[in-house]
């Protein structure tokens, strides 16, 4: 009896390794990494706090109804007017042109990559398109201002030197890889058995794609388009360089306009002291931009969750 319990004590001592240090290290690492993960939450709070703080100050100086109803955007003039819809119309116009370019280009590229290109070719084409996605936006701005605009003006002389059309076209090119890549993922994920089943019914390739594959991948495709709109709305350098600095409420793509992002850049480049109304106004514009993109992003995520087809 006594010998037995001695034995078990000895065995226990042998069996249990000294884990004190290991557990301590693990706890320290987990706490540090948890802090790192919290930084992402803190970033969100930081964004909201810095936007809300200055925007609130802005709206104590400028009533919100003026922000929503003024017909002009002239915050740097003595007779200042603050109609956000002027900037919104600029953003809307460039994004609209961009999406008209990018959706067909991106979607057809995605179809080509996943349905028509051979696996070998696909291995080359996909990185090439990703390369297009990796081109910095300031390079696209150079392209829009110094190549596309002169080209457009040589065809239509009435176009101004800064215009929404060339900015929108290049913006569209810049978001095409996003649509192509995300849509391709969605199309590629459609199981082959669906295609084979459709072929067995005697359809042609195009009928299979438009009749079965695209509807099956629709949630991913729509989500990619919404994300692309959100990207176009928030894109800065192309519109700041090529679309002009002239806030006008217009849907004419041939004249200079100003987008929300271009306004933030214009004020940031100037010598605007912190605390001035112009300084606060970029945060008010930033808040509008943030809300707009947030709504688009949330809608896109919701759309995928709601309509995603699951194939096992």
């Amino acid at each position: 009896m006594n010998a037995d319990s001695n034995l078990s004590q000895v065995a226990d001592a042998l069996w249990k390794p000294n884990r004190g240090l290991n557990n301590f290290v693990q706890r320290a690492v987990v706490i540090t990494f948890a802090m790192f993960a919290l930084i992402s939450i803190a970033t969100t709070f930081g964004i909201v706090a810095s936007l809300v703080f200055e925007t609130f100050e802005f709206f104590t100086a400028v009533p919100i109804w003026r922000f929503l109803t003024d017909r002009q955007w002239t915050p740097l003039f003595t007779n200042a007017q603050y109609g956000i819809f002027v900037l919104l119309s600029g953003t809307f116009l460039t994004s609209l042109i961009a999406i008209v370019v990018a959706v067909p280009l991106g979607l057809f590229s995605a179809i080509c990559l996943s349905e028509y290109a051979s696996p070998n070719l696909r291995r080359w084409l996909k990185p090439a398109l990703e390369l297009l996605a990796g081109v910095p936006s300031v390079v696209f701005g150079y392209f829009a201002l110094l190549l596309v605009t002169p080209f457009l003006r040589s065809m239509f002389p009435q176009i101004a030197g800064f215009n929404a059309l060339s900015a929108g076209l290049v913006l569209g090119i810049s978001i095409t890889p996003l649509i192509a890549s995300l849509s391709e993922d969605a199309i590629y994920a459609v199981p082959d058995s669906l295609r084979q089943g459709c072929y067995a019914l005697g359809t042609t390739r195009r009928e299979t794609i438009t009749g079965v594959v695209l509807p099956a991948a629709l949630s991913g495709i729509v989500a990619s388009c919404i994300l692309a709109i959100s990207r176009a709305v928030g894109e800065t350098m192309i519109v700041a360089l090529a679309a002009g600095q002239n806030p006008t409420m217009t849907l004419n793509p041939f004249v200079p306009i100003m987008t929300m992002t271009a306004y933030i850049v214009q004020v940031s480049l100037g010598d605007t002291p912190a605390g001035s109304l112009a300084y606060k106004s970029i945060f008010a514009v930033g808040t509008s931009l943030f809300l707009l993109t947030l709504i688009l992003n949330v809608f896109s995520f919701w759309f995928v969750r709601r309509f995603q087809e699951k194939y096992e």
Binding site: S50, V233, G234, E235, T236, L294, N297, V298
Partner: peptide, 17 residues
């Protein structure tokens, strides 16, 4: 996922403030 889709200029405003 939301942060990844926030426009980069908004991060600029965050950094500024």
């Amino acid at each position: 996922a939301n942060l990844a889709a926030v426009p980069s200029i908004i991060y600029g405003l965050l950094g500024l403030q």
